[in-house]
Amino acid sequence: MSAARVMGALCFAIAVLLLPACESTPPLSPTQWNAIETRSVQAPRDEVLRAAAAVILDQGYYFTASDQGAGTMTAARVPLVYQDQYRRTGGMRSSAPVDTIAVWVSQISPAESSMRIQLRESGEHIASDERVSAFWNAVQRRLLAKSPPSDPPSRQEGV
């Protein structure tokens, strides 16, 4: 009887030890992350940076770091479920989990830039093609709104 109990305890312990090895999806490689998070934008680097900064604010994030020279911006926002914890533990200095977005814009050519968008939810790195595309679309909309209007059609004088 006691031997059976010991065996049971052993089996349970082995099962607990082996469970972490049963992850269904393998971690993504750096190349895969790069493919998911990178988009190309037909605009100069500084314009893309300005548009991305505006979209970050539109989406309710606050900036935590930025470097114009490097073309990087990091911003955070507090998820609704953690807002109480955030307020009670020091606000912006609190260790409450936050959602972050990190954007890196680099120049490919004078009229083309590459934009990398990294998303984290409560500290966890998110691989979401749709959300990256949604951010990219918002940046492109901003760029279109900012672009100067095309030349008006020439008027025929004397008509």
Binding site: P30, N34, A65, D67, G69, T74, A102, W104
Partner: peptide, 17 residues
Amino acid sequence: VGSLFDLGYTIRSSDKR
């Protein structure tokens, strides 16, 4: 910067100059 993104790191502070 690209390598940090590739390895899943989030930039906390940066000064290119």
